[in-house]
């Protein structure tokens, strides 16, 4: 089971045109420059890199929010390159996203109940209203939000609670793959750890596969099985987390790792060196 490949990206490319003058040569930002990787069922692949390296674009290419220029994406053995809109809709049910900013990713004018029911209304037209309500309540419970809050609006919640709601919304369709783009970057450390623990618990319970995109190496190390390092649109290194963190090969990975602040006070560090 664990070795079965859920999603595979083959040499995917995305170049964004930059606006230039009429007669100038067209220029492009090579956001994703022909990268290949796969994610196995039930595993967490961490994708790290600094701002502008193409990690978020990669996440969006996988679930078709942005179309690839070339290359293919194979999900559960099906090539999605030529999938129609209808087919994409079906696939997206199986791959959901969790976004970075819990303040911007929930509609301020919808109640929590409606935010969670909307995906069900779209994808499960035959489900009875009562069944939908039950599923919403059960899932919120699992994500640590009490059912008293069903009729509240997003602004009534703290950042951590909103991220729990964002995760519940991603899970409501019972997806196989969760693409989480910096899901804990906007949160305080004490809240960040709660959300990371929650994501681990949910993964175990629902046998979820994660693509975990983050700039924070310690968070990625904590949650991932394997890690890919991106730099200027290229995947410069990929390996199990032990390989990447204990024995990095690429110079950029080494620089990244040496930049992480250690929790060793300055005075002690000076004694050591």
């Amino acid at each position: 089971m664990r070795d079965e490949i859920l999603i595979e990206a083959k040499n995917i490319k995305k170049h964004f045109p930059i606006k230039t003058g009429w007669f100038e040569e067209k220029k492009y930002v090579k956001a994703v420059n022909g990268i290949s990787f796969h994610i196995k069922k039930g595993e967490t692949l961490g994708l790290v890199g600094e701002s502008g390296c193409g990690k978020s674009t990669t996440g969006r290419l996988l679930n078709g929010l942005i179309q690839v220029d070339s290359g293919s994406i194979i999900f559960n053995g099906k090539d999605l390159a030529n999938a129609s809109k209808q087919e994409w809709k079906k696939y997206r049910q199986k791959m959901q996203m969790v976004f970075q900013d819990p303040y911007a990713s929930l509609s301020p004018r919808m109640k929590i109940k409606d935010i969670l029911r909307e995906p069900l209304d779209i994808h499960f037209k035959n489900m009875s209203s009562r069944e939908k309500d039950k599923r919403v309540e059960d899932l919120l419970d699992k994500c640590g939000i009490s059912r008293f809050h069903l009729n509240k609006y997003p602004h009534e919640f703290s950042g951590g609670q909103r991220q729990r709601i964002g995760i519940a919304r991603a899970l409501i369709l019972q997806p196989e793959l969760i693409i989480a783009d910096e899901p804990v970057s906007a949160l305080d450390v004490s809240i960040q750890s709660q959300i990371l623990n929650l994501m681990k618990d949910l993964q175990e319970e629902y046998n979820l596969t994660y693509l975990f995109i983050s700039h924070d190496l310690s968070v990625v190390e904590h949650i991932s099985d394997r890690v890919g390092v991106m730099y200027f649109g290229d995947l410069v290194e990929m390996g199990t987390k032990e390989e990447i963190f204990n024995n990095p090969q690429h110079d950029y990975t080494k620089t990244l790792l040496s930049s992480i602040p250690q929790m060793i006070p300055k005075a002690r560090r000076k004694q050591l060196t």
């Binding site: 750890s193 190496l217 310690s218």
Partner: peptide, 10 residues
């Protein structure tokens, strides 16, 4: 608590 909440590499 703050110190233990932060994931540590290794």
């Amino acid at each position: 608590g703050l110190m233990e909440s932060a994931p540590k590499i290794g």
